[in-house]
């Protein structure tokens, strides 16, 4: 076995998570494992609760007004919903990339990458060198090295999304959550992100929500199918697509609904 300097991702275990918007239940008791250094794709029709589930994994869901969560999420055996756990520290350990690229638009490219380490007071990582590394990791360095001081809003959508990934990994998280990271991007940008995700799984545990079934097949080691707030089936990606156990999964992956 080769030794890597990079950190290894951690296992994420979800135990009977329920997520509410006021009274209505968007996630109805889901239990699932996200193994370390694997890419797990979450698929399912719109409104099935996959985005909500992913937002429960770094305690973002509870930030919404009248939103609440019940259940456990274990990060290497530690419950991130434990009474003495600070959601802020959870979000530093479990990074997130959103559907729409959301860099801080007036902030420079460099400052965007370093926003996380600076927030956590991590001086060792709030350096130009560390930013360069993060930008190299996402394959953006060559494109931006001569304009690190330009506002992030100057970049194209695909570049902005890679900048957001660089910003998330600059915090050296254990887990990277990606909520439809390519849905706002063109096919070439999408391909670059997919290649990037495949590289990043060596260092992080990745959970990726996607609407694109081909994308799940291209990148995911495991795929989970959700419907109406419930987890219907989770399996190795090729098994889920080729030998689905549940008839609803079969209907969805063969394009009969959704």
């Amino acid at each position: 076995m080769t030794t890597t300097i990079a950190k290894k991702g951690m296992n994420l275990t979800v135990k009977n998570i329920q997520a509410f918007y006021g009274e209505s239940k968007a996630v109805k008791g889901v239990s699932i494992d996200f193994p370390a250094n694997k890419i797990t794709a979450l698929i399912g029709p719109s409104g099935c609760g996959k985005s909500t589930l992913v937002r429960c994994l770094n305690r973002m869901h509870e930030e919404g007004s009248s939103a609440s969560v019940r259940g456990k999420v274990l990060l290497n055996e530690e419950n991130i919903y434990g009474a003495d756990v600070d959601p802020v520290s959870v979000r530093r350990t479990i990074g997130m990339v959103f559907q729409k690229p959301n860099p801080f638009p007036t902030m420079s490219i460099l400052d965007n990458v370093l926003a996380g380490p600076r927030l956590s007071g991590d001086r060792a990582h709030a350096t130009r060198k560390h930013a360069e590394q993060a930008l190299r990791d996402v394959g953006l360095w060559a494109e931006v090295k001569h304009k690190l001081n330009r506002p992030a809003a100057d970049l194209s959508g695909g570049q902005q999304q890679r900048l957001c990934i660089a910003r998330a990994i600059a915090l050296e998280p254990e887990v990277l959550l990606m909520d439809e990271p390519c849905s706002a991007l063109d096919p070439i940008s999408t391909q670059r992100i997919e290649e990037l995700v495949l590289r990043l799984k060596k260092r992080f545990t990745i959970v990726m929500v996607t609407h694109n079934l081909q994308q799940a097949q291209r990148v995911a080691d495991r795929t989970a199918f959700m419907l109406d707030g419930e987890l219907i089936e989770v399996a190795a990606t090729s098994n889920l697509f080729n030998k689905p156990k549940d008839s609803r999964t079969k209907k969805y992956v063969t394009g009969q609904f959704g």
Partner: peptide
């Protein structure tokens, strides 16, 4: 989206 970006970085 921008507020969430900050929150997700542990702000």
């Amino acid at each position: 989206a921008e507020k969430e970006a900050a929150l997700a970085l542990g702000a």
